[in-house]
């Protein structure tokens, strides 16, 4: 591999993919969103599909995803990203289309769209960031918030009797015949990030064969909403999130 050298003589070993814009991420320090953005755009760059990829941004912290991803994008209404992605994919079936949503967007207000998009087997990738909280609006309870987890709208902890249970929507969509590839990944360690990247690569490859929906849940964090340092969030994920949301493939295509 040819080495790239900067003006000051230093060798480039790691750089921003060309599929990310120069706009600095607005995300809180330690937040998983920027890592997932980068992973997605690295794959788009490496596969050489920038000209053929269209993304759909959600409502939530990643509402401005289109400011960072250097591809054509659309900003959807809250919960409707997979319907918007359906509209795009149906009229541009040869393009790579992905939606990007948080837990409130995908698993609360957009539950119907999520289930029906997967059930139709729309040939798209759905990226689902699960950090068990509404980050953008200030740390309210999400459908994936854990039992006893304290949030701005469950100040005494989430009680199942009044507030229901954490929704394992990834397990739910994995049941659907339209789902081709369903996996749960994370970004809390560099190893996890590498695994996520492999999953994203697979999901984009699957769009070439048009056999159903790819669905990737990323168990992520929210240092501001959880009121923790980024380092503290890593152990909190491991101790509290993973028991309920275990990592790994839930459905893989049968060849």
């Amino acid at each position: 591999m040819e080495t790239e050298v900067m003006n000051n003589g230093l060798e480039v070993v790691y750089k921003k993919p060309s599929t990310l814009t120069d706009t600095p991420f607005h995300y809180c320090p330690g937040c998983g969103h920027s890592v997932v953005h980068r992973v997605l755009m690295e794959v788009v760059e490496e596969m050489g599909i920038q000209e053929n990829t269209i993304g759909v941004a959600p409502v939530g912290c990643s509402v401005f995803a289109y400011h960072y991803m250097n591809i054509d994008m659309q900003e959807a209404a809250h919960g409707r990203a997979s319907a918007v992605a359906t509209g795009i994919k149906r009229v541009l079936p040869d393009k790579f289309v992905f939606s990007y949503q948080g837990d409130g967007d995908l698993a609360a207000i957009g539950t119907a769209e999520t289930i029906h998009t997967v059930n139709r087997g729309e040939n798209i990738l759905m990226v689902f960031i699960n950090n068990a909280i509404y980050g953008m609006t200030g740390g309210q309870m999400a459908p994936t918030t854990l039992i006893e987890q304290v949030t701005a709208t469950s100040p005494y902890g989430r009680k199942s009797e009044a507030m229901g249970f954490p929704l394992k929507i990834t397990e739910l969509v994995a049941q659907l015949p339209g789902a081709l590839y369903v996996t749960r990944q994370a970004v809390h360690t560099s190893g996890a990030v590498r695994k996520l990247k492999k999953a994203v690569q697979k999901a984009f490859e699957y769009q070439k064969v048009n056999r159903g929906t790819s669905f990737i849940e990323v168990v992520s964090n929210c240092p501001s909403g959880w009121k923790m340092t980024p380092v503290e969030t890593i152990s909190w994920i491991e101790e509290n999130m993973f028991p309920l949301y275990p990592l790994g493939d839930l459905k893989v295509p049968k060849d």
Binding site: Q74, V84, T86, G87, H116
Partner: peptide, 19 residues
Amino acid sequence: LQAESELAAINMIYGAAGA
């Protein structure tokens, strides 16, 4: 496409019109 709701239908319209 018969959508799952009018909500979904109009958002599919948004996506396809945007394309």
